[in-house]
Nucleic acid binder design. Structure first.
Lengths: 263, 263
DNA sequence: CGTTCCCTTGAGTAGTTTCAATACTTGTGG
DNA sequence: CCACAAGTATTGAAACTACTCAAGGGAACG
């Protein structure tokens, strides 16, 4: 089962062990995995709301997200738009390695821990290691697929479904690295954040959450979503996990934390 | 001036001469450009509405779009969602080179001409040619940045502005390869297509177009947008071209077709 | 000359926004 | 331990935006 190997991975590769777990990770041999781990120069902890990358300031550093969440945001005058979300295991700011500037910002949502990957090490390692290069290429393409899904969801679902969809996606993405809990998805998101993610006002995000609660589909309190029926929630949100490219395991991908038993 | 060199490019590289013109194209030396041109195996013409790649059917072929437009669509039951748009010069279906399946479909909008790039040739060439690999990497990242912008636009602009934004973007992207006209953007899009792109109903797309016409910002007839004041249109749509990563030329990027004079 | 596809308009309904006011949490200092 | 402040969550009402259903008009193509 996937969970067992995940434990080994994070023990042996404490910084990068979550990278594309259950996905393109198996394209890499041990030398690749060691090279990946070695790309991390140092760790850094971000407090909630701290800006790691700003589109205003050129950056020559990417990172791997070790713990916590990062928002991808685009500012537009006074407004902030959350156009994407990073979970542990994601390599973030690929832009730094190839472009002068970034089109968006990276801001921590709650406390987060990252491992800094300098451009120099990245370029050299990728040029040498084919398996790693392919796995990174895969990661970027999955990232793009997720972005397309966000585009679709934003355009075509109503507010309660948008919010439900965000949580369904997070649940699955966390499950890849064995971080998902059985009955809950814990996030530090405020309703303000959820509104900015789903393109609705804070007030309406609140009403959407109320509707989810009233229709007994899910309960969201202080950023944490609780549900007893993931299938129902996913159906409601029209969530189809294919775009996350998680192997062919289907529902097995929704593997749960062992520590948390039913009731 | 960029236009002059574009003409040379398409003469010397008839299939791939538009690839990332004015952007990452200058990262490639002549050998790279020749290798890129050689990656194309054969040409193919797609009639309007023809499906080049379906998410249902595994594909081992990418392509470069030579002429016309392609929609990226996601089907959801009966509904079709247009989540992105390809213009000439784009390499399409990168997914084929790295993934078993695609998360979305590629469908021609009007007649289109593409140059097929088989996976085998792609992999081999990229492994050998660093400059080319970097340019392709850049192309994928720009593509992702465009996708993020679509996410933002879909979430936060009203319908008239969304439609205007689509045309502003197309205008700039065509301008990179010298295909932009001074006063018009010609597309084969129906109002039905525009609705699916902007996440609004056909009827509402029509009303949005009416509003643009009434407020003298732009006139859209049979897919073609006419305007006499691009700056005003871009301001209205809150269009900021930075996310297209078009060099540092600013307004110069909006270079116009020489053949089409005022009136 | 009619079919077909596309565009346009109207009317009623549903979803969303804004403004505004009120409560609940959490953390801080007295 | 309480008071207070700041941030977060909730609710109401009016206005706006967008949706659906429905019907009719226009252009292109055979």
């Amino acid at each position: 089962m996937a969970r067992g190997s995940d434990v080994i991975e994070t023990a042996r590769y404490p910084l990068t062990g979550k990278f594309m777990a259950g996905r393109s990770r198996d394209r890499m041999d041990e030398a690749d995995l060691l090279a990946l781990e070695a790309m991390v120069d140092r760790q850094r902890t971000l407090e909630g709301g701290e800006v790691f990358v700003s589109s205003d300031i050129p950056s020559r550093e990417g990172a791997i997200l070790i713990d916590g969440f990062l928002f991808r945001t685009i500012r537009d005058g006074a407004r902030r738009h959350i156009v994407g979300l990073h979970v542990p295991g994601d390599i973030v700011n690929f832009n730094a390695f190839t472009m002068e500037r970034s089109d968006h910002d990276l801001v921590s949502a709650g406390r987060a821990r990252i491992g800094i990957i300098p451009q120099r090490g990245f370029d050299a390692t990728v040029a040498e290691r084919h398996g790693l290069a392919r796995a990174l290429w895969f990661a970027v393409l999955v990232d793009a697929a997720v972005q397309r899904k966000w585009t679709q969801v934003l355009g075509h679902l109503d507010a309660p479904r948008k919010i439900a969809h965000v949580y369904c996606e997070i649940q699955r993405r966390l499950a890849f690295t064995g971080e998902a809990c059985r009955r809950a998805v814990r996030t530090p998101f405020t309703q303000f954040d959820l509104g900015d993610m789903c393109g609705v006002s804070t007030v309406h995000a609140n009403r959407a959450i109320s509707k989810l609660r009233e229709s007994k589909i899910a309960e969201i309190r202080r950023g944490t979503l609780y549900t007893h029926d993931w299938d129902a929630l996913e159906r409601y949100a029209r969530f189809e996990p294919g775009y996350l490219y998680g192997g062919n395991r289907g529902k097995e991908d929704r593997c749960m934390h062992e520590g948390v038993r039913s009731q």
